[in-house]
Design a protein around this nucleic acid. Structure first.
Lengths: 129, 129
DNA sequence: GACGAACTACGAAAGATTTCGTTGACCGTA
DNA sequence: TACGGTCAACGAAATCTTTCGTAGTTCGTC
């Protein structure tokens, strides 16, 4: 009770979360090294962001070692769903079907991907029954 | 050539674009009145945003009347696809299928919506053949 | 022509996001 | 113990986003 839901992560924050989801709990150094493949922000920039994310509740921090170890508070899928729900409200008038169909039309999805989606639909209907 | 792609609209900008898509070309007054149902920003706030959006190229402006008439530069669907593609890259590692499946699982989509999506999949495969 | 309403333009300020330099603490080793 | 490397903390600056007050213009009406 009283726990505010975690805020929507910003662009830079999301890049950090993705590293934490992939690597699991990590130090700032490890996150920075992973990010430097695609981004070129400095070490202290990443550190500062992760401190802010701790304040916001997006990540938790284990301070028992000298190099603090950070973990994402929310799972990857929960965050993805949150971002999608947010976009659905802001850009799609709350309609999930419109969002999905636009995603499909934009996706150039391969035949395998289309099949995976179809199977997923089947599974959803089974479970609904 | 040289035309930069339109930047990703911010939250407040997207709210304005949605009004323009729904109403068609509109004055600041009309947009502000439409927004005041759900937002409570002042008239000059909306005006300033729309001026900025003009500078960014998100909207165009017809100044031939005293009350300028604004139009969205890009269509609703193109903007939606842009936002989805952006989110796909930032949060889903570029995988459209993952995005679609998360959207489905988050959507609580109704049976009709699931059917609409299934039919859409069928149509895509037909066209691909 | 004067008044009031509606409009644009401008600038400033508040808030959020992103950046990074500097400082001081800690740790291992020479 | 001194040195070099690594780290967290802090503050400040740069940028972007959102907000709105004020000023000046235009238009219709009295």
């Amino acid at each position: 009770m009283g726990d505010k839901p975690t805020p929507r992560p910003t662009d830079a924050e999301l890049a950090i979360l993705r590293v934490l989801w992939e690597r699991g709990p990590s130090t700032v150094r490890e996150v920075h090294d992973a990010l430097s493949a695609t981004h070129d922000s400095g070490y202290t920039t990443v550190l500062k962001l992760m401190q802010i994310m701790t304040d916001k509740g997006l990540v938790t921090r284990d301070e028992s070692q000298r190099a603090h170890v950070y973990s994402s508070r929310e799972g990857e899928q929960k965050t993805q769903r949150q971002l999608l729900g947010d976009l659905m409200d802001r850009a799609f008038g709350g309609s999930p079907a419109k969002l999905v169909m636009q995603a499909l039309s934009a996706s150039r999805a391969s035949a395998e991907e289309l099949n995976a989606i179809r199977q997923y639909l089947d599974k959803m209907e089974e479970e609904k029954a």
